[in-house]
Design a protein around this nucleic acid. Structure first.
Lengths: 143, 143
DNA sequence: AGCATATACATAGCTCGCTATTCAAAAGGA
DNA sequence: TCCTTTTGAATAGCGAGCTATGTATATGCT
């Protein structure tokens, strides 16, 4: 009846692939007490501490409400602390705890391992095509 | 401090890409009263009606609990009806309503349009590489 | 036949996306 | 200065993914 084949649909594959990536990452960082959504936030804070929620929203391209909830969980889990902003009393700056700082090495190793596993068997050219084509799709779909 | 670049991380891009795909699809099928998670289930039921929840779980590679909740929402929204299974009283067969059947054309058109937009500007070879490399990553990560 | 195991589904409770709304503070214009 | 608009963040509520558990029915073994 239909010519729609999900195994040839970029959108279906993108969803499926994101789920298996998230699952693989979750397995590896769970022992560290981390969840995948927290990981991306940590990456930005490892790069630069003391960002505001607004900064993180811009860097990670998620909605503000999503980030607010992620930060709430991270605060609950002892990964971040928030301090009053110097010059804007609406904002708070976000700071890694010692514990979160200590996780950088193992967490990045976990992410690198997952990426390596996903691309195992791809040539170097295929790997850069893969990255390039995903970036292309993102740019083409983003409003 | 770190050599981790999210714009070169397959996992980060996979997550980001899945989000923009889902957002683009959601926008286009919302007028039909559909959400993205329901769409994939409908694809299977358009192909073959009267499947069980178990069949759908196997075909779509999601967890049983995820499918149970999706089906509950689809029943609530008048997309499916469930009937007692012929020979197994634990199971129920899942049947599309007339309304859901009528959505096949426009919904598949929406999905095709999103895929086309994502791959706009890719050559034919790049498109098939894209599909192939995503499939490769899924297979490499799946347990 | 009877009991143990396996299976189909439902439910609870979590993460992490989203939209929409609200609130307080900052910035800007008259 | 005062008022409007903009902006930073929180919250409510939903979808869709997950794990873990519960419950009823089938199935299989002895």
């Amino acid at each position: 009846m239909s010519d729609f084949d999900k195994h040839r649909s970029a959108g279906y594959l993108a969803n499926h692939m994101a789920r298996v990536f998230a699952h693989a990452l979750a397995e590896r960082i769970r022992p560290l007490g981390l969840a995948p959504g927290q990981f991306m936030t940590l990456i930005e804070l490892w790069r630069e501490d003391g960002l505001t929620q607004r900064d993180l929203v811009a860097r990670l391209d998620v909605e503000q409400a999503t980030m607010a909830n992620t930060l709430k969980r991270m605060e609950r889990d002892g990964l971040i602390a928030r301090r009053a902003h110097d010059s804007d009393s609406r904002a708070r700056t976000i700071h890694l705890t010692e514990h979160a700082r200590a996780l950088q090495g193992p967490a990045e190793a976990a992410a690198n391992a997952v990426n390596a596993q996903a691309m195992r068997g791809m040539s170097g050219a295929e790997r850069s095509d893969f990255i390039r084509l995903m970036t292309h799709a993102i740019d083409s779909l983003k409003p």
